[in-house]
Nucleic acid binder design. Sequence first.
DNA 1: CTGTTAGCGCCTTCAA
DNA 2: TTGAAGGCGCTAACAG
Lengths: 347, 347
Amino acid sequence: MAKASSTGVRPTIRMVAELAGVSTATVSYVLSGRRGDGGPGVSDPTAEKVKAAAERLGYRPNQAARAIRTGRTNTVILSLTMLSDPWSLSVIEAVQKAAVPLGITPMILGDADWVKVLGTHNADAVFVDAVRGNQRDDLRKLAARGTTLVVFDEVLDAEGFDVIRSIAGPGCRMAVEHLLHGHRRIACLTPATASGTSGGSRYRAYSDALASAGIPERQDYVGLFDGTTAGAYAASTRLLSMPDRPTAIYATTDYAAVSAINAAQRLGLGVGVDVDIIGVGNTVEGERMSPSLSTVGPVDFFDKLARRLLKRAAGHGDHDEPAVLDFPWHLFVRESAPHRSTATRLY
Amino acid sequence: MAKASSTGVRPTIRMVAELAGVSTATVSYVLSGRRGDGGPGVSDPTAEKVKAAAERLGYRPNQAARAIRTGRTNTVILSLTMLSDPWSLSVIEAVQKAAVPLGITPMILGDADWVKVLGTHNADAVFVDAVRGNQRDDLRKLAARGTTLVVFDEVLDAEGFDVIRSIAGPGCRMAVEHLLHGHRRIACLTPATASGTSGGSRYRAYSDALASAGIPERQDYVGLFDGTTAGAYAASTRLLSMPDRPTAIYATTDYAAVSAINAAQRLGLGVGVDVDIIGVGNTVEGERMSPSLSTVGPVDFFDKLARRLLKRAAGHGDHDEPAVLDFPWHLFVRESAPHRSTATRLY
DNA sequence: CTGTTAGCGCCTTCAA
DNA sequence: TTGAAGGCGCTAACAG
């Protein structure tokens, strides 16, 4: 049984070198596993001695020190504003699956204030899931300083960083039009902050589709909430408790749609029967729940996102130009808002 | 309008020094804002020059380099195994609130494999939310190497690190006994993995309480699930669809209880009326939902946890001995499992 | 009050 | 096949 370092001090490469009776360079070669591919060869007995010494001391290379020398951190940062949103969990899941085999560690930044953090902390690549108007300049500055960015946004251009975009507008339009096949009294459930930001296009799809169908928009059919799950639940309850309640709800995010389903069931309404509910985003949670959530969303979005991010993180030399990646949207018809024919329509 | 660094290279302290016409040391003094408190003073005009130069270049100190020198990263790592659990979100929220004013950045590690990551990445303090049996040695080794740890566990001792413990046993017992006032047919909803780990005590409280009350335990009243929300929902549906369905469900986590409530409502059962549901953990989500979730849990747990972690992260000099912190549990009677008198009991 | 020097732990030449 | 030396960006101790 090795005694390990009971000194309370972290073992350094130098201690390993001393214990093995070699130089620090040799240790570095052996432990970073690069001998033979152009790097100097090290004799097997020496390599063994080094490995044994490292093991005995419990040596692990110091990433901070390595980063300062190599410029690589083997880390990607995910800046996620709404951690409770299933969308964020899907991002995390996909990135983690793709990162682990590459020896890259994903670190999650829950704070919305990524500007300050990314200025001082480095990562091989950074994913940012929401950019407010006044942060556009910060993004450009970060990119100019060499930070590798992948940004999720519907309007930004690729000014030194990748932009992942999934044009919500047409997709959302499809969602509302799907409801229009069976309904006239359609409500919209959307966070209050979304009026100005990217969510705005999701709401606009609702307005436009209704207008095209010749249905006047009712103010009391717009359920604004504060962005929380509880808020979405409350707003849904209000909508579904009205005397002339809507027969369908278009929710601008999947998690809001999930809350709406729970609220409807609480009120004793059959989801997909008495009331249809459709979401936006195509998250796994929606697919797995019961009744399964009808939704619109990009296909394979999360995997593609993860691939892009890790390609940027790993491929330090490859210089694909930063680009805008556009993901097409599909309509996923499931139980919460099934197909409606003239026979089954609710008006 | 400053041109900023359009070189694609991150500005260093040396560039700032050159531009300002001073030495790097002076820059360091000025920008780390420590002049006067024992450190050398710097004249105001010089300080201004330095600040202007830094601003012009968009300079931000490199945390990795600083860390290697000072041993401090201004970072805490939260290793959270089940990010979708509201419990994790509460931890994040509390830590973030406490960390920001101290200039400390919380980084979240979603990967369950913290052993590898913490070996190479450093932080001023680390919170670990789950320790498997074979990881105990790793914990000790990490602590011996100087990693500051705060571990959430019910059985570990403080072997070089803090242990936060919230003896679930007695609290869970209270939960089941609360149900026993009004019920005889009580089911238990618990993740399958919990048989061996800390969750085991939560299940044992159920067994013991039933035994003490002279009620035989029914195998078909134990709803095992895979740890996911969807799994908990499915298991709840099965329980509540039985011919002689239970009139109460004791869920070993709040998030499972939430799923059970949704399942019950889906089946048209009145929660708190036809069926009582109680959770474990006292998360905010449970408190805010409708019907509000009855539960047991420690009081002020998350804030206390955050305070401890940040005290460890900030107080580099203070050497309180690592200790076991024990948080007492309370019973929170809310709508999903109200008080039952002999008049309102369901048997 | 300011600049010089010496490292932190690691990796990468270059010479032996 | 190995070792010595230099430097990454930064700060701490010591000169001036």
